[in-house]
Design a protein around this nucleic acid. Sequence first.
DNA 1: GTGAAAGCGCTAACAC
DNA 2: GTGTTAGCGCTTTCAC
Lengths: 340, 340
Amino acid sequence: MPATIRDVARASGVHISTVSRTFSAPHLVNPETRSRVLACAENLGYRPNRAARALITGRTHNVGLIVADLANPFFPPLIKAAESQARHRDYHIFVTDTNEDPAVEEELIHALAKQVDGILLCSPRLNNSLIEQLSREVPLVLINRQVAGLPAVVMDVGQGARLAIEHLIGLGHHQIGLLGGPRGSWTNREIRRAVTAAARSADAVLTGIGPNQPTEAGGAAVAEQVRRSGVTAVLAYNDLMAIGLIEELDALGVRVPADISVVGIDDIALSRRIRPRLTTVANPTPAAGRAAVDMLLQRAGDDRRTTAQVTLQTELVIRDSTAPPPATRTAVVLASHVKE
Amino acid sequence: MPATIRDVARASGVHISTVSRTFSAPHLVNPETRSRVLACAENLGYRPNRAARALITGRTHNVGLIVADLANPFFPPLIKAAESQARHRDYHIFVTDTNEDPAVEEELIHALAKQVDGILLCSPRLNNSLIEQLSREVPLVLINRQVAGLPAVVMDVGQGARLAIEHLIGLGHHQIGLLGGPRGSWTNREIRRAVTAAARSADAVLTGIGPNQPTEAGGAAVAEQVRRSGVTAVLAYNDLMAIGLIEELDALGVRVPADISVVGIDDIALSRRIRPRLTTVANPTPAAGRAAVDMLLQRAGDDRRTTAQVTLQTELVIRDSTAPPPATRTAVVLASHVKE
DNA sequence: GTGAAAGCGCTAACAC
DNA sequence: GTGTTAGCGCTTTCAC
């Protein structure tokens, strides 16, 4: 049986409220009493029960972290950083996985609401109005998503995507494919917005392909379509798709970057390991995890109305999967606008 | 303000204990009353407060999961499977990361003990007696570690390592290097035990190198030592080390598998992506995560004295990083026993 | 500076 | 089948 506050009170000859103060407001108790209580507590292996404390203070010292897919290598570095940051602030993290399913996401927010002081929503797939509504039930901090009035940490993927397109155009590409991500992805919309603008101002032609699953299978599935579309370069929604695409193109006899250039987004560890090493847009995911935790704890503290939005910079990392288009290629225009 | 049991009682005109029963023992309440209460609850958005419930039942419906390094690709599939399994049983998971530090591990177990019904200890670095002692504070299920009297799920890495050695010997290797993992690793000891036995019965000579960090950097750091040791094949503690080693050997002008064969352990996603594709021992990590959750919940249930140990099979996956040793090589014996 | 008492939201005997 | 009561472990007034 674990020691309770009463055991410590008995052992140190004081009232339980004095023990309570020793842990939650030490300055209110006589130094001598305090050290005696502390000694007894140590002795009994006493630790305040956080659940009981939460019942009365309303602060659980727990936070939730909801991600679309734990197995997607984009998330672990973010989770690790968030967990570490939270722990150093004396918080614990519930980590959950929605399998990219908005319904699961909503249910999880409800289920966690009472046990946490706030939830970090990572690349949520829910629509804006639902998110806003849920944020009235429990403090929410968004990661890679912007909703008016809600605190958010976003990585400026639009900027990175623009650099990627400019890089491709600089290499001489005019027919560029854009592999879309999952439905409901804010990141996806940001990318398309930035890329469309960049392409227009350079007279490049964009071919939208998607929505797709944000996985290697999703990338592989559209390889044939990419090959037939006549594009000489592709920007994928994320590295996983880019890698799946490259593999499958290779199986179809299409060489990257000789025949088609491919750019990813995220810069997961895998991307510098594969051959050709992937040109990609690097996201500062650990920094995003830390920043989101800080915003949540600050917000959960006194000022509930903090709605800051932090934007972290991304960076184009040029490796070996991009090159000038094949000179001998016949110009074939199969698409002249961005398709949904 | 979230609705409490009292709000629901008031709205449905019954006593709070009836509301309580409606949720925790529905069969004890009149179907008509029940549906009325349920309707009011739904209406008010009421959800039982688990912390309050835990205070009296002693069951939190939470479990802890402690891993050495969230960013090590070995863990995410296990975490994902465990989280999913737990959620389907109406449990939530605290995920924490120890950074391979035993002191952090111990502190986390203490910190989590009161808020969970049990803890999944994944590849713990603590010593046996400490683990045993901690298991008296909170139910523990070990993953990839065996301690007498404690429930555990282990992947039979010894068996996989033996197959790996036999594979190498079958290819004609006699001088084999063994890259050790971190200090305190049970897996590491199992591997060495199995490998030593397999090598002895085939008159192969083993050179132990380590302990090492279980990362790519750890593998890269010993490349020079591997090259000079005269071995023609290496079994690494895990895939990450094997990959780091291959990269660095490549930089030193040593070819894999032409000059040196390399085998990893784990079969992380990365291993089939790199070139040469890595020969490795596949671990059923999702199955281990699920099994561990099941054991913990069963144990946390009625029978606290269940101490089953489940062993999951591993499998040798032969890819392109292993080949016969170079025929022209002069036999050089620099080591004739397994070093620590 | 410390004790007494109330109560956070809920469950679990025990009556009726 | 439902209401009453006590209390899980803790914090927080309010006295003294």
